[in-house]
Every structure is written in structure tokens, then in C-alpha cells.
Design a protein around this nucleic acid. Structure first.
Lengths: 235, 235
DNA sequence: GTCGTTGAAATTGCGCGCAATTCCAGAGGA
DNA sequence: TCCTCTGGAATTGCGCGCAATTTCAACGAC
């Protein structure tokens, strides 16, 4: 039986891989909220059957990243203001706990990983590659979850970060400075000093600022060519 | 197709309803970890097509409540010790935040709901209906999440409580007192007084005690008749 | 020029049924 | 008595293809 688990040769695409590729496309905003995800087009792009793609879309919808409308298909979730606030609020609740745990139990290697992430983000930001910088900024929060060593919290944060990306795409302030990126460095300082309370407070403020920087006026949807976003089949 | 002449008017069973019925069966331990969930049997029980049941099972597996083994089918998740600890640990992280939010922002009506829940649990416990008491005990924690007004946290807690039930089924101490049920009342007292810190600490201890009451020695699986658990189709 | 109408093409929902795999009881051998 | 083997039954994985619905552009009425 020719079972190929996962090869760099992407002839037999994958199952969870497809999920992650789509999530990646969401977090660095290559797909915007409201975009219609044509099932057949996705099948074509990832070279899988409709059935497999259906499963991926189901999982995305269970996680709030995609909305399934009967007879219409899958659309990238575009949260209303209430849901957006709920996402941010959930992050405040969860990340306070994560930061506390990290402040109390993180080791030197963990700090190193955080430091490298911050360095990468700054690098991208100074090079003007804002999109990549945003991606790293999200990964910082996921890193914190990873450092707790709890895979459940880790998955949860991946989901919340992705949903946050969608919310930011929808409601970001047009003249918004890609702001507060100094926060991560300050937070790391507190974590190194095992100052749990200041770290928690800073995370709270960090997310408050993010929320305040949003302006809850929906803007026009954009429909995007899926074949352009996922470069495949050509070299 | 043979139309049901029998009593119940639940003509088209539902989609998310089935999910919730199965979750309910998990939380009050009518289905034990390791139980095989025969797809055709479930289709028969809920009167749905295999396709629909497949979706439900997929969702259960995405949420960690069921394990899908290729060519073998669906099994109620039976976590190992590590995963069990991760579930409890995630609850400590999340519920600390929830309790803090509730302590700061809950109103009189909220306290009433909590009080009623505690009363119901005590009632069941004194009447010797332990299973029901446990169910209410879990609902208390979900109630706290509901009171935050955040549907994301609410769904998350439903999932974590269900997974906790499975873990308890697997690892509960045989001679264990169905313990610490006084904690909920004490917690409510703190919440009423808006004492966030004591409430958070108590929740932490509450979950610590739960974890300590577990003995990580797996016991025998039990296969159960699905048609008995979900009473349907007769009478 | 703007707004309904309409019909064909595109798309999704899903039942059907086969192929592949696993399960299990019973036979045979050590 | 306890393994090992084996063949048929049970079960899952999934492609195929049709029916139902939606989409969209061309058309005609006002």
C-alpha cells in the first residue's frame, strides 16, 4: 500500500496541511473576510477531492474562521462588532493566564525563542515588509502558548490569533500606525524578571490598545482569485 | 421510507442537536471513554444519513471528544495521563480569567442563577443521584462562562468540561468521595463580595483537588450498547 | 438609464454503492 | 489449553453523478 505520510513533493497534498495553509493565508491577510471559498477551485488548487476539501471547510467553520451558508458555500468569516469584541475579550481572559504561567515557569531557552521572534518582527518592520511583521507579531502570542507546554492552549491561541487577523483586516484604522510593537519587548523583560503581575497587566493593555485601534465600520468586501493566492501547479 | 408512526414528534432529528446529545451523554458519563461509536448504529438511532453522522463525528473529533481511527471508526477519546493533565491545566488557566471577570462584573441575576445551580446539585447529591449531581457540577463552570457574556469562552468551557468528564471516568479514585462540592458555594460567596483574588485562588485549588483525586492507572474499557443509551424508536 | 425578469450555467447537497480494510468465530495444529 | 490461520460478515472510505438552488448576464418594460 503506497501510503505517503508527508513529503516535500507535494503531489499527494495533505489533509491537515491544507487546513494550515488556509489558516496561514488568513493570518497574513492574503485572504480577506467575506471572500468566497469556491469548493471546486480549492480542490483544483490543492489537488484533492471534493470530499476531502469539504472536511477542511467544515473544520474551518467549526473554528469560526469560515461561515458555511447552505447552497451558497463557504465564506471567510467576517465578524460583526460584537463578535470582534468577543474575540478580543476571550484573548484577554486566556492570555492573562498564559502570561502568568510563562512568567512563573519559563526557562532561558524559552526567552531566547521570544527574543528571536521579536528580532524577526523588527527586521521585517524596518524592511517595510509589514505583512510579514504582522505575521510574526501573531506568532509571538502563539509562542507564549507553546511555552506553557499545553497543546490545548496552543491550538486555542492559533485559532484566536487567526480570528483576530480577520477582525483586524475588517476594522483596522486606515491611518493606523502598525502600533505598539514595543510591547512585546517590554513584556519579555517582565517575563525574564518573573514579574507576573506587570506582565499580565501589560498584555491586557496590549490587547486593549489593539481593540481601541479598531474602527467598527465595515468596509467593502473583496473577492480574490484563489489560484493567485495559493501558488501551485506552476513554477 | 417507513414514516415513524410512533409517539415522538421529532420528525427530522437535527444536526447540532445530535452533537449536543452526544456531548450530554459524555458529560454525565452514559458513554465511557474507549467506547466504539458505530456509525451505522448512530445513524439508526438518530435517523440520519451516514453523511450527516460523519459530520457530527468529525466535529467531535476536532474538539478532542472522539478519536477517529482510519478504517476502524470513531472511539470516545480516552486521554492518557499527559493529556488529562493538559486539560486540567488549560481549565486552570482559562477559568482563573473567567472567575476574575465574573467577580468584577456579575450582577444580582447572575448570582441567582449560580445559587440555583448549587441548590439543584445539593438536592441531587442528597437524593443519592450522583450522576445528575456531577452533571450540575459541570454546568456550574459553564454557567460562569455564560455570565461573562462571551460565547467563545462559553463554547470553550463546554468542551473542556466534557473532556474533563471523560478524564474523570477514566481515572477517578474508586473510593473517592464525590468531593469538594462545598467549593462552589464558597466561590459564590467570594463572587458576591467582588473578591476577585480569593475567588481565583479558590478555583485554582478546586481544580487542583480534582486533579489530585485522580489516580492515573487506566482501567478496563467498556463497550456499551448505543441503542440503550439513547432511548429512541421505541414506545 | 434604471429596475425587474428570465433562462442557462455554475455550484452545492447528498444518496448510492463499490472497494478496501478490519473484525470475529471456528477450524486446525502444537 | 492456547496460539495461529482463515474466510466470510461487518464496517469504513470515498468517488460518482444527479437534483436542488443560486448566480449572472442578457433582455425587455417603464
Amino acid at each position: 500500500m503506497p501510503r505517503r505520510p508527508a513529503g516535500n513533493t507535494d503531489q499527494p497534498p495533505a489533509q491537515g496541511d491544507i487546513y494550515e495553509q488556509i489558516v496561514d493565508a488568513l493570518v497574513d491577510q492574503r485572504i480577506l473576510p467575506g471572500t468566497r471559498l469556491n469548493e471546486l477551485a480549492l480542490c483544483e488548487v490543492f489537488k484533492v477531492s471534493r470530499r476531502e476539501m469539504e472536511k477542511v471547510l467544515l473544520r474551518l467553520s467549526f473554528n469560526g474562521l469560515v461561515t458555511l451558508i447552505p447552497n451558497r458555500g463557504a465564506f471567510v468569516a467576517s465578524s460583526d462588532a460584537n463578535e470582534a469584541r468577543a474575540i478580543l475579550s476571550a484573548r484577554k481572559t486566556v492570555e492573562a493566564g498564559i502570561v502568568e504561567a510563562v512568567a512563573l515557569r519559563a526557562s532561558g531557552a524559552d526567552f531566547k525563542r521570544l527574543e528571536q521572534n521579536i528580532a524577526r518582527e523588527d527586521e521585517c518592520r524596518h524592511a517595510g515588509r509589514i505583512r510579514e511583521a504582522i505575521k510574526h507579531s501573531g506568532e509571538f502570542h502563539i509562542l507564549l502558548a507553546e511555552i506553557t507546554g499545553n497543546p490545548i492552549l496552543c491550538d486555542l491561541m492559533k485559532q484566536l490569533v487567526a480570528r483576530t487577523s480577520l477582525v483586524v483586516s475588517l476594522y483596522e484604522n486606515p491611518n493606523g500606525l502598525s502600533c505598539w510593537h514595543g510591547d512585546h519587548a517590554t513584556l519579555l523583560k517582565h517575563l525574564r524578571a518573573h514579574k507576573a503581575r506587570p506582565a499580565m497587566n501589560l498584555m491586557q493593555r496590549h490587547l486593549d490598545h489593539l481593540e481601541e485601534s479598531l474602527v467598527f465600520t465595515p468596509q467593502a468586501d473583496t473577492s480574490t482569485d484563489l489560484r493567485t493566492i495559493f501558488r501551485r501547479g506552476e513554477r
